[in-house]
Design a protein around this nucleic acid. Sequence first.
DNA 1: CGGGAACTGTTGCGTCCGCAATCTGTTCCC
DNA 2: GGGAACAGATTGCGGACGCAACAGTTCCCG
Lengths: 156, 156
Amino acid sequence: MTTRPDERRLQAWERLLRTHRALLRQLEQELKDERDLPLAWYELLLRLARTPDGRLRMHELAQSLVLTPSGLTRLADRLETAGLIRRESCPTDRRGAFAILTPDGRARLRHAAPIHLRGIDQHFGRHLSDDEAAQLSRVFTKVLIALGEDEDACSA
Amino acid sequence: MTTRPDERRLQAWERLLRTHRALLRQLEQELKDERDLPLAWYELLLRLARTPDGRLRMHELAQSLVLTPSGLTRLADRLETAGLIRRESCPTDRRGAFAILTPDGRARLRHAAPIHLRGIDQHFGRHLSDDEAAQLSRVFTKVLIALGEDEDACSA
DNA sequence: CGGGAACTGTTGCGTCCGCAATCTGTTCCC
DNA sequence: GGGAACAGATTGCGGACGCAACAGTTCCCG
C-alpha cells in the first residue's frame, strides 16, 4: 500500500499551490506594470547581483532558478538582447559560458527592487510572525534537501 | 518610503518559490510518467469530483484553479477532447456553461490519485510535523484572504 | 420598455518553457 | 595517445498560458 498524506498535510499542500499561484500572479503584475520587468528577469538579475563579480555559469544559474538548461538559454537570450546581461565563454573550460551582469542590468535591478520588495512584504511577509517566517524557511529547506535541490539553495 | 520585508521573511519567500518549483516539477513528472496525466488535468478533475454532482461553472473552475478564463477554456478543450469532461450550457443563464465530469474522467482521477497522494506525502507531507502542517495552512489562508483569493478557497 | 453597463465564455496572437536531438569540448581509461 | 563516455550549452519543435478583442446574455436604471 502506498503511503498517503493525512488531511492536514494534504490541505497544507493545496493551500501552498493556490497561494503560490495567486501570489506570483500579483507580484508579476506589479513588477510588470510599474517597472516593465518580468519576474523571471528580476530573479535572474538578482542571482547574478548576489555573486561577488556579477557572473555565474549557465548551468549554475539554471539550477539556481530551477529552470532547464534550454529554458535558461532562451531567458538569457532575451536578457542579453535587452542589454541586461552579456555572455562570456569560460577560459578554463571552453564548453562553458558565463552570464554576466551589465551595468544596465544592475541599474535595472536596483530600480525594480523597491517595488518588488514592497510587494513581497505587503502580500506575504506582512502576514507572518517572526516565528512563522523562520518555520517556513526551515520546513522548505528540509523539503528542498530531500528533493536534492539543496546544493546551493542556502547561498541563493 | 516603501515597506520592505526583513531578511527572515525574504528568505521564507525565496524558499517558497524554489520549493514550489522543484516540488511541482517532481510531482508533475511522476504523474506523467506513471499515469500519463498532466498535473493541471488532475487538479481540474479533482475540483469537479469534489462537487456533489461533478459539475462546476467555467468561471468558478477558473477561479478555483487560479487560471484566467482563456486559460481554462483551452484546458477544458483538451480534457473534453480526451473525453474526461463534457460541457453543458447553463439552462438559467445562456451565457454560462458547466464543465461536467464524465465517468471516464472520474475513473482516470481515481486511477491517478494514489500516485499523486503518494508523491505529496513522500516529497512534502513526510517532512512536516502536525503543527507545521496546520501552521502552513493557517498562514497561507491568511495570505489568500488578503489577496482576495479566499472566496471558495476553503471549500477547494 | 429600452439601451447601455456588466458579465460569461471563446478566439487570435504572442510569449515562455520543457523535451529530445545536436554540437562542441573535456575527461577517462586502457 | 586515442577513442568512448560524459558535460555544457544551444536549437527545433510543440505545448500551455495570458492579454486583448469579441460575441452573446443578462441586469439595471431611467
